[in-house]
Design a protein around this nucleic acid. Structure first.
Lengths: 237, 237
DNA sequence: CGCGTGATTGAGCTTGGTCAATTACGGTGG
DNA sequence: CCACCGTAATTGACCAAGCTCAATCACGCG
């Protein structure tokens, strides 16, 4: 069980945290069993919007499970060009890679509830529990697979295809069956995730709206009546 | 010790294979110890230029160590757009990710000598040898890290920066100290690795030549007098 | 109600892609 | 040894997708 609560950033006062929040994360999945085994190490952490969870160059002391909110993994070039390597949604684990110092930073896209695990103890567990070690390997393999998919997107897809793929991915991952989709991230974040500019993101999104492929009720709330159409537009057939 | 030799493709006759070839792979490194432990499972495999080692959709039956030659990991879109996820050079291991079926294919850029390991036995070893399991995790983590670096390149770097980064990477990895660099892959392959067209690759390469930043003795043989300059042009400072 | 951030929209412009012609090169056979 | 051939690379002229710059709009919050 989680025994402590830590707070990162000055936005903690904005968060209405209840014990229920932390419980929301138990989702029946292949991973459920494996995760129970590390719950004992966990500390609940609240992070305000745009606060840093860890930074490029930090020593990799913790890894995380996202309970509520959204997280972006950011890579910066010296001149400020930005690339978002990954968005994490509730139930995702991140920061588990083996590396002495972080090569990208993690930031809260929205106010977040996280569970934080000391990497030292995770590593120790992996050392004596082959099943858990394999689970970690599966996770990293999954990340790698998605990374390869993203390379294809970044290297070869048109702006329209990138947006369609993105919406399809988000609809899939937020996965609440309905056609409603709430995007927690800004246009800039989407652009930096897809290798575009915010203007292009905005234009394509609004064009899709005009063409009745999606409905933009507000900037962040999107209706996706037919996910299949999006898949087609995404270019992967 | 390797006990068998298998041959893939019709180009085997072109390869002059001697026992020495297989020995060339022992390179003193952090990994050396871990690798000895799987050598017993290995089968030497010869693969001719442009032959497929495994294909998207195959069940992941083997993983590989490259002894000589070069390998590309390729991802295709239904309409034929192509993306090279990774080039592998001698000493690299690949195909170790955990996934039932391959989501990209591996092809020989040049005639290759490989050692092939049954994944079943690798997995079994990981199950009972935590140190080896950790080594596998480190490898996958390393791949993921490079994948993130490539995302930055594909999403945000100019053509010039991509080429410079590429040359720097190749110089680093072939790592024979000298300024000479032999590129085993074609312009098309380079383009598909960097998210460009072959024309752009050619243009930039020849411009760098004209500006005396590199010397193109032939299409594949490149001199890199000052690697530091390339690093700067690569944009990562 | 007014302010500030984020989103939208428009008007050129630039980078890299497309199409096409030409050149270089490695291998083959006379 | 050299002429020939097919592939790969180079180079040029043009084009367009998406970027830049800039103005305007919308919405949430005090």
């Amino acid at each position: 069980m989680q025994t402590q609560t830590a707070i990162i950033g000055n936005a903690a006062r904005k968060i209405r945290w209840t014990p229920e929040v932390a419980r929301e994360e138990t989702k029946p999945s292949r991973a459920a069993l494996d995760l129970k085994v590390i719950d004992a190490f966990g500390t609940v952490v609240l992070v305000g919007r745009d606060q840093e969870i860890f930074a490029e160059g930090d020593t990799s002391e913790f890894c995380y499970r996202l309970v509520a909110g959204a997280v972006r993994l950011v890579k910066l070039m010296p001149d400020g060009r930005r690339q978002i390597a990954e968005f994490h949604l509730p139930h995702d684990l991140f920061g588990f890679e083996i590396c002495e110092t972080r090569y990208l930073s993690a930031e809260a896209v929205a106010d977040c509830t996280l569970i934080r695990y000391p990497r030292r103890r995770i590593e120790a567990l992996a050392e004596r529990d082959p099943e858990f070690a394999r689970y970690l390997r599966e996770m990293t393999s999954g990340c790698l697979r998605r990374a390869h998919e993203r390379m294809m997107l970044l290297a070869r897809k048109s702006a329209d295809e990138r947006i369609a793929s993105f919406l399809e991915e988000m609809a899939e991952r937020s996965g609440n069956g309905t056609s409603a989709l709430e995007l927690p991230m800004s246009r800039v974040d989407i652009a930096d995730y897809l290798g575009l500019t915010l203007e292009t993101v905005s234009r394509v999104l609004n064009r899709l709206h005009r063409d009745h492929i999606i409905t933009l009720s507000s900037a962040t709330h999107i209706e996706v009546p037919d996910r299949e159409t999006l898949r087609e537009l995404g270019g992967d057939l």
